[in-house]
Amino acid sequence: MSSAWSITASANPPRSLFVDYPLGHTTGRPNHLVEQTGIVSSALALIASATEPGRIVPLPLAWPDEWKNQAAGLGDGRSERLDTPQYDRPEDEQAVRQSDR
């Protein structure tokens, strides 16, 4: 799977399905199970159908809203790279301590 053509082309895997969605949606829009299943199914179909190594196959799907102008802009949207576990929710850390006992 890929939503970043140039990065995938550089890594050069044997088969790739390209989904032209904003990063963070490689397998579809949230709560659209039918779309997600179609995307995954199309990716798996390449196992048998691919004939040329390194080909990236674009899926004809378009994100419903304009998003590329903002996503193509410069700037650093990353958060600080801390070296301690970064929990999604604070209570997750407690769940780890409990499962350690």
Binding site: T26, G28, L33, Q36, T37
Partner: peptide
């Protein structure tokens, strides 16, 4: 499921 397509 948008990045971990387990339901699909």
């Amino acid at each position: 499921n948008v990045v971990f397509p387990i339901d699909p």
